[in-house]
Structures are given as structure tokens and as C-alpha cells.
Design a protein around this nucleic acid. Structure first.
Lengths: 107, 107
DNA sequence: TAGTAATATATATAGATTTTAATATTTACA
DNA sequence: TGTAAATATTAAAATCTATATATATTACTA
């Protein structure tokens, strides 16, 4: 694997490695949103949302489009949602594994 | 989305957010390997490899099995490789996008 | 066979760097 | 002027990288 791709992957995952940013992306899955809409859903200061959006923007994960004083955000590549879905599957597998282990221990 | 899953996703991506750890996972894609084999492929100190393996182990991403003095590592869930493949696709999309933009600028 | 060396891996430590989260300030537009 | 969003700043927490040390297993040898 070219080193460039390896670095891209690491940087990309780093951009996703924060609960607030995951939350933002999950909200954008239900449709594009203004910053103040995201802020309302998340119940945190809009400056914090902007900060996290800036990180996602810099990695080209989201796109912000101005509309007057507002900015509408969207996810650039829908493959991202597949990525999140697979992660959920991995989570479920891992849960099943843990449950199985606990059951085995009780035998 | 339950907050537990959200946190899992963030922690999971954090475990993947390092070039050395990506490298290790890509090497394990070609088959299980001992620590010293990983070390030889990567050309870095084995203590560094162990450190990174510990991080992947703690997140249940890889599994280490003792065999004498050696430890054989494997990836726990093959879905991880799908995840890496999708990330590569996202990388390609993003490259195409950049190339298109540069072409448009030259018109 | 007891003692010791060699090998493979893991863990501990510490200084430098990065990230986080909260707050304050700035910019852009209606 | 008021609203929406972005940026700057800062202290605390986390991560990284390199080095040192520890542990566990096997091999060697007197």
C-alpha cells in the first residue's frame, strides 16, 4: 500500500475519532443541516459545533455552503455512512462475543 | 443512536488513527503474523510494535495468541478489512474531486 | 540438573507534541 | 444593531516517540 494512502486512512480516522463529530455526522445522515440546527439537536454551544465542523471540513468530510448568514452542512461522500454502518456491525459482533464469553464462564 | 454506540465508534476510530497501526492491520490482512515478523516488515523497534499492538488489543481489534516465546496476532473481525477498503474508495473519490477541481481551474 | 544466557514480547517512564473543551473575540451579513 | 458562524486563546488531558526495564520461555553449559 502506498504510504500516502496509509497516511490518508490514519488522518481520516482521526477526524472521526471524537463523539461530537460522530454525532454531527449521524445527524447529517438524516439530511443537510444549518449549524444552529446541529447546535439545537446537540445541546452544546455553537462555537463548539463550529470547531468540530472545521475539523471535518479540513479533512473534506463535510461541505459547508453559505446561505445568507447561515451555513448549510452536508456530508461529501455517502460512502461515509456505509463506513458507520460497518462500524455498528463490528460493535454488534464484539457485543455478541462478550456475551458468549460471559455465558461460557457461567457454565 | 444510543450514546454507547456513538462512544464505541469514536474510540474505535481513534484506535485506527495512527499510520503504524494502519500498517500493522494491512500486514495482518495477508495473514496472521508474529510480532517479530511485523517488526521485520515495518523496520521499527519491536517495543514500538508491541505498544501499538497493545492499543489494538485493548480495543479488541486484534487478538494475540501465545506460542512459546512468540505471540501470533490476528484481526478479530474481517469486517475491518471492508472498512479499510471503503476508506480507500473514499480516498479515490476525494482524489478525483481534487483533480476535477484543478482541471476546472485551468479552463 | 542447577544456573545462566539469549530471545521474544510487554510494560514503564518521561519529555515533546497534539487534542480537547470552554470561553472570548471577530467577521459577515441582513 | 442583531444574528449566525468562525476563529483565537488557553489550560487540562491525552498521545506519541524513544528509551529503559521487566517478564516469560527456551537454549546452553558447567
Amino acid at each position: 500500500m502506498p504510504q500516502e494512502l496509509q497516511t490518508f486512512k490514519a488522518e481520516f480516522f482521526k477526524a472521526l475519532s471524537n463523539p461530537l463529530r460522530i454525532r454531527i455526522l449521524e445527524l447529517l445522515r438524516d439530511g443537510d443541516k444549518y449549524v444552529h440546527e446541529l447546535q439545537a439537536h446537540m445541546g452544546i454551544d455553537s462555537a463548539v459545533v463550529s470547531q468540530q465542523l472545521a475539523i471535518l471540513r479540513n479533512r473534506n468530510i463535510v461541505l459547508g455552503v453559505k446561505d445568507g448568514t447561515k451555513v448549510m452542512y452536508s456530508v461529501r461522500d455517502p460512502l461515509l455512512f456505509e463506513l458507520l454502518d460497518i462500524t455498528k456491525q463490528i460493535f454488534n459482533h464484539s457485543l455478541n462475543h462478550t456475551i458468549q464469553m460471559l455465558q461460557d464462564m457461567n457454565q
